[in-house]
Amino acid sequence: MNDTNYRNQLKNQIKDAYGKVTYTYTAHHKLADRLENKNRRVKNMQIALSAFSSCGFFASIITNKSALAWLSGTFSVLSLFLNIYTKEYKIQDEINQHRNAANALWDIRESYISLLTDYDILENDDIRHQRDVLCKKVSEVNNNYPATDSKSYRAAQKALKKDEEQTFKEGEIDSILPNRIG
């Protein structure tokens, strides 16, 4: 194999790794967003169940209707179950883990972009070394943080392909730079 073919294969491998990191980075963000929405719904449900059980309890005392006491008791039991669920399942911790993974992957993603930018002026040994370092960093992130799920991957796929979340259109970057720079 000649040097040109090898360099093309090496560049394609780096592009592929960049793409995988970008997908994983985006999937971690999508999963964290989904968990934040779930956490918000659970907290709102806790407040609503507490309010219904309290109001029902006081209404049953005032009106002396046993049906309101039963209804209040039902809301109270549901509130207890939801509180037990949230005590055991630390949603905020999981959200933070996925945000931290995304932050670590962002740095790696930017390093891949830099490697691709410098590619033509680097020697093969330097490229391989940087590639290997980046692969180890990705491996560390994958080993130290929770994985994403298929729903998050599909959301990342839509965000990257259809919504073009990680890309800029022609001239878009210039339009957001301060006038003295752009």
Rank of each mutant, 00 (worst) to 15 (best):
E140I: 07
K161R: 13
Q166T: 04
V141K: 03
D163I: 09
Y153T: 09
Q166K: 11
Q166D: 15
K169M: 10
F168M: 11
S150Y: 05
E165V: 13
Q157I: 01
A155D: 12
Q157L: 12
E140Y: 09
K151T: 12
E164I: 09
S152G: 13
N143S: 15
K169Y: 10
S152C: 05
K161W: 10
K161N: 14
E170Y: 13
N144K: 07
K158C: 01
A147W: 00
S150E: 15
K158E: 09
N143F: 03
K158P: 00
A155H: 03
V138P: 00
E165K: 11
N143H: 11
E140H: 08
A155V: 06
T167W: 08
E164W: 05
R154D: 06
E170W: 09
Q166Y: 07
S150I: 13
E172D: 13
E172M: 03
K158V: 12
K169C: 05
N143M: 11
Y145R: 01
N143L: 11
P146V: 05
L160D: 04
A147K: 12
E165F: 09
E172V: 06
A159S: 15
A155T: 05
N142C: 06
N143R: 12
S152M: 05
D149P: 07
R154E: 07
A156E: 02
K169L: 13
A147F: 03
E165R: 11
N143Y: 08
A147V: 03
V141P: 06
E172A: 15
K161S: 12
K158A: 03
A159T: 08
K162F: 08
N144G: 10
K136Y: 04
A159V: 11
L160S: 02
N144Q: 11
Q157K: 15
D163F: 06
N144M: 04
A155F: 02
E172H: 06
A159H: 04
K136D: 10
V138Y: 01
N142F: 01
Y145P: 01
N144S: 15
E165S: 13
N144F: 02
K151A: 12
E140S: 10
K158Q: 05
K158M: 03
K137Q: 15
S139T: 12
K151E: 13
S150L: 11
T148C: 06
Q157N: 14
V141Q: 05
K137T: 01
K158N: 08
K158W: 03
I173V: 15
R154V: 04
A147H: 10
Q157H: 14
A156N: 04
S139L: 04
T148H: 07
F168K: 07
K136T: 06
Y145N: 05
A147T: 12
R154K: 14
S152V: 10
S152L: 06
D163S: 12
N143A: 14
Y153S: 01
K162I: 14
T167S: 15
D149K: 03
E172S: 07
S139G: 05
A147R: 07
E165T: 13
F168N: 14
F168Q: 08
N143I: 01
K158L: 06
V138A: 00
T148F: 10
D149V: 10
